[in-house]
Amino acid sequence: MYNILVCDDDKEIVNAIEIYLSKEGYKIFKAYNGKEALEIMGKEEIHLVILDIMMPKMDGMTTASKIRETKTVPIIMLSAKSEDYDKVAGLNNGADDYVTKPFNPVELIARVNSQIRRYTSLGSFQKKEEGTIYQTGDLIINDDTKQVEVEGREIKLTPTEYNILKFLTKNKGKVYSINQIYENVWEDEAYGADNIIAVHIRHIREKIEINPKEPKYLKVIWGIGYKIEKLEEEPKHAKNIK
């Protein structure tokens, strides 16, 4: 059983999160401001923290920084601020993920599960699997077994989707246009106005991403092409050990 600390000054939101996450089998600790959160962090063994940003007494940013001084537990920021720079600020202050209010409960649960998996059991996959491996971050493709795993979840893809994902992951960080992908995956000359690739990409995104509209792995560069983000095959929270 994993312990999750939920901290928000809106009691109803905390309660709702508690209901959702309890159903998933997590034990919930509740705090209503940053100071209470830090107190609980000191007393209990916490495996994940969900933090609101705008709170009385001590805000989420400060709290996240304080937690990061001693702990490496995953932190998910929860905020009504949806601007890009708010997200960047949150991530810079030690958060691992950022969810905007009003959030989709399913998405929140998925993100919590993902972070918990990462925090507790990551690294075992690589050891037990052998063969030709393509990887970026927590997206791992085993070309021998044709298996795809994202953050511990196994993903089922069609052969075409698999080939596209494999091609992009093999060349992670590089941007490919629809025609380039077609030529490389189909090994045929691309002709005509074809949006089949775009449809496939969307399907892959919907399968591997928690929120397909804000993808973490398979990014769309509108008007230019697609790419698999080059993510560090980092140990847990390596970015916080500066």
Partner: peptide, 30 residues
């Protein structure tokens, strides 16, 4: 710099399911 053709293809791909749902026939002329 970006390619309008690519963008239209990409967005069309994104909306394919939704268009199909409404039985809309998308005709691209690029």
């Amino acid at each position: 710099k970006l390619d309008v053709k690519e963008l239209i293809k990409q967005v069309s791909g994104e909306f394919e399911d939704k268009l199909k749902e409404k039985k809309l026939d998308l005709l691209l002329n690029l």
